[in-house]
């Protein structure tokens, strides 16, 4: 009996892993394709694209495409710009949007419900539909810098950051998550005289690892993949981000190997960021000792 049970468990474990691996293959194959293609010359890349060789580092393998990509475009500048703009936006966004979410869920104040409904309505607006009016606006906004007041935000980092710090979706993410947190805890803390800041910092934030991570990765993806907006507001190469940089590779005859190399390179920061956050996703509420 015991042996059969053990066998069963072993078998079940194997099935589980088999399922996990099968699904993993489905999710990862285009990316393996991308990575392997980046090592091949164009001619071979296209010949391989229809069969299993597409996933194997076979044939004429080299890093030539990577070298060529750096020749063609200032890849490092693009990645730096994207990481900078994305990083600042994500940080500010988490701060402001979680604070707003906190205020919407835990604090009672005048105008709360109306404003929340209005905010949710903005979720719906695809950015493209407001891009032109927004462009006309930012082209004439003032800015106070070290050298006094200047007009117009074009060709800067701020024009790529400030309009995107707050958005309805991120606020909404926090609102929905905070609703699941034990409200009595907050009330109890208030009764004991804790300040709002203390409650936010000491009680809510430690409980909200998963949602901060989710909001961060979502914002990161949106910002890192920006194309239309930076295209419209950066005329100087020095401010361009990675997705605008991708266009450098689509000449009349596309250099597919270089495209794949560039894509592989610009995917690294996002993947790194996700892996860094991964732990936070599973930071269980139980581990903090709070029970719902």
């Amino acid at each position: 009996m015991a042996m059969i049970a053990a066998d069963n468990r072993g078998l079940r474990l194997v099935t589980r892993y088999a399922v996990l691996v099968l699904i993993a293959i489905i999710f990862v194959f285009p990316l393996v394709f991308m990575l392997m293609s980046s090592l091949k010359p164009d001619q071979q890349l296209l010949q391989d694209s229809g069969n299993l060789r597409a996933f194997l580092p076979v044939g004429d393998i080299s890093l030539q495409n990577y070298t060529d990509a750096f020749q063609r475009a200032p890849v490092a500048t693009f990645v730096f710009n994207s990481v900078l703009v994305t990083g600042i936006t994500v940080a500010l966004s988490l701060l402001l949007c979680s604070a707003a979410g906190f205020a919407f869920v835990f604090v009672r104040w005048k105008g709360r419900d109306t404003l929340l409904a209005l905010l949710l309505a903005t979720l719906i607006l695809p950015f493209e539909t407001i891009a032109i009016p927004l462009l006309m606006m930012v082209a004439h906004l003032p800015w106070v810098g070290f050298d006094g007041v200047s007009w117009g935000w074009l060709n800067s980092y701020r024009v790529q950051i400030i309009p995107f710090i707050a958005d309805g979706l991120t606020v909404f993410l926090f609102v929905q998550y905070f609703k699941d947190l034990p409200g009595e805890l907050i009330e109890a803390a208030r009764v004991e005289g804790a300040s709002w800041w203390q409650i936010y910092r000491r009680i809510v934030m430690p409980l909200s690892g998963p949602i901060f991570a989710t909001a961060a990765i979502l914002k990161f993806l949106v910002m890192y993949n920006q194309y239309l907006w930076p295209l419209m507001v950066t005329q100087e190469e020095g401010y361009r981000p990675v997705m605008v940089g991708l266009q450098y590779f689509f000449q009349l005859n596309v250099a597919w190997g270089e495209v794949m190399a560039y894509l592989s390179m610009i995917t690294v920061p996002v993947l790194a960021f996700y892996l860094y956050l991964q732990k936070a996703f599973i930071a269980s509420i139980a581990s903090t000792g709070v029970k719902g």
Binding site: C97, A100, V107, A166, Y200
Partner: peptide
């Protein structure tokens, strides 16, 4: 849990940004 000042102080910045860069356009 009632505090108009806190509510506006915490939600205000996000609301202002959304009003200026999403709703107005």
């Amino acid at each position: 849990t009632v505090s108009n000042r806190t509510g506006w102080l915490m939600a205000g910045p996000a609301i202002l940004l959304i009003a200026g860069f999403v709703i107005l356009p």
